[in-house]
Simulated scan of single mutants.
Amino acid sequence: MTALLKLERFSVRYGRLLAVNDVSLEARAGEVTTVIGPNGAGKTSLVNAIMGLIPFQGSLAFPALPEASRSIEARIRARISLVPETRDLFGPMSVLDNLKLGAFALRREAGFDMASRVAEVFALFPRLAERRDQRADTLSGGERQMLALGRALMLGPSFLMLDEPSLGLAPMIVAEMFRIIQRLKDDGVSILLIEQNARAALRISDRAYVLENGAVHLAGKAAEIAADPRVIDAYLGGSMAHADDGRQRLSGRR
């Protein structure tokens, strides 16, 4: 598989705070690569730095898209898209107008058809079609996440990064969100998934990394990570909120 993203000795600092510490990571074309870990592990800092939103040290490369590493604008032109944890919708604007903004960078491309792209997103998210003229800030949490993901898909991404797509959602909506991610994977979308819901994330992923205190503690095939007793103990035996003791054991047995 072709590497779409490759990080080596990748670090992110906020003043004296080292949020991401010497991480090496690879995401491949046609796969879902997941990064799991507790709150404060550095997952959001990692993905924001990959997108170019915050400074970093170390090596970042998009081997199949070499121009993309130059700037945020270059990443967008290369159709690299991020759905942030905060979703960052334009609240006073309608669902339809939020979606159209997702394809803003493509507006001058020959053959680009905005109506067809919107129709594809509405087919994936029928609930958004029902609310096409509704203000984004009146949507439910699940609908807002659908809109954030739909807006990213308007770009027709070659590489899609999702930061905590299940955060704050009801279990039924979480299950729907992971079904959609699985469908995107089946359609050939390459995905970097940042997620606290380890069980669901590992189930649909090809490769996985466990990030704790800014550093990679485990890496490998998702199925192998899911079967690792340390991961089962720390993340899969119960809820994330009650896994502190397990995480300490995982950190102590690197």
Rank of each mutant, 00 (worst) to 15 (best):
L4M: 11
A61H: 12
L160E: 00
D233T: 08
R207S: 12
A170H: 09
L169T: 01
G238C: 07
M172D: 11
I50Q: 01
A64S: 12
K6F: 02
P171E: 06
A234W: 04
R16G: 11
E164M: 05
G102M: 08
R131S: 01
E120V: 07
L184M: 11
D245K: 15
A3P: 08
G37D: 01
M154I: 04
P84D: 06
R87I: 03
A234V: 10
R70C: 10
L202I: 07
Q248P: 01
E130R: 13
L101M: 14
L218R: 14
T2Q: 15
S69Q: 13
V231T: 00
S116W: 05
A27G: 06
K43M: 06
L106S: 06
V189I: 15
G42K: 04
A61Y: 12
M177S: 06
P126R: 00
I194D: 00
H242K: 11
R75Y: 02
N21C: 07
E85P: 00
G111L: 07
I204N: 09
K43C: 07
D228T: 08
R9L: 01
D244A: 13
L5V: 14
A105P: 04
A152S: 09
G188I: 03
R135D: 07
L96Y: 10
G168H: 08
F112W: 15
P66N: 12
K185S: 04
F56E: 01
L193R: 03
N39L: 13
T33F: 03
R70A: 15
F112V: 08
E130S: 14
K100T: 03
S140Y: 14
G214P: 05
L60F: 06
D137S: 07
R144M: 14
R132V: 11
S140K: 13
P171G: 11
A105R: 11
P66S: 12
A219R: 15
H217T: 10
S45M: 01
R28K: 14
A27H: 00
F90V: 10
A29D: 02
G168R: 12
L250Q: 06
N197E: 04
G168W: 15
I181M: 07
G58R: 02
V174N: 14
I181N: 05
G238S: 12
G111A: 12
A29C: 05
R183H: 11
R117A: 15
A49D: 01
L167M: 10
I50C: 01
S251G: 13
R117Y: 07
F112M: 06
